[in-house]
Amino acid sequence: MSNKAARNLFILGSLFFFAIFLGLTYDTMGKLDKRAPEITEQVNAGKMVWHKYDCIGCHTILGNGSYFAPDLTKATERKPKGYLKRFLMDPKSANPNASMPKLGIRDEEADDLIAFLDWNSKVDTNGWPPKPILAAAGGVAGKELTEGQKLYQSLGCAACHLINGIGGTTGPELTTVGARRDRSWLIGHFKNPEEYVKNSAMPKVEAPEADIEKLADYMITLK
């Protein structure tokens, strides 16, 4: 191959592949809005808050950004919105162990940001992030789950609490909670956490009385 032929191959080939890329980009642009919910004024305002505080300097969203703090794509699915709002405005009041600094996010900014995060959680991402294999497996080693264990999963308690190393770290660990609390305390606490723990960031457990009792029964087995 002569130098000139190599040069032409480089230039024309690059243009060819760029043309394909442009075509795919055009097609993609026409499809993106259908793969995500409508963008309201509040969602857009939330996006400006996201940029203003340079959230991406620590967090990822849709998996892109910094890898210093949790990915926020599904933040509103993983944590109750009331908790998120409180955390955004004053992280340590919601979780004393939080590393996130208090940035001065105002009340309405927090609402807008949560609307923006909620929008992101509903984008069709081709199934990302995938459900963890172990957590999705449910019952382990063929053992049937108790009613209380099923409720613990379906109510999303593990988003904030740890049991035997599995779960979130924003709330207190529950591995030995049965040794610390009795049944009536647990039931009362589920119905109104703030009455039992001052400034608790935990939302009320919205479930029928019978389910709350089953959940408490499960808790007291954890010793």
């Binding site: 190599a6 191959l9 480089f10 080939g13 690059s14 592949f17 760029f18 394909i20 890329f21 795919l24 097609d27 993609t28 499809k31 993106l32 793969r35 995500a36 849709l62 998996g63 892109n64 984008v123 069709d124 991402t125 081709n126 990302w128 992030p129």
Partner: peptide, 23 residues
């Protein structure tokens, strides 16, 4: 550099897996 462009331009697609873009 030709092969850089032939593979790299459409290789951008590896960033378009999970951000809300078509399959």
């Amino acid at each position: 550099v030709g092969f850089v462009m032939f593979t790299g331009i459409l290789g951008t697609g590896h960033h378009y897996y999970w951000i809300g873009t078509p399959g």
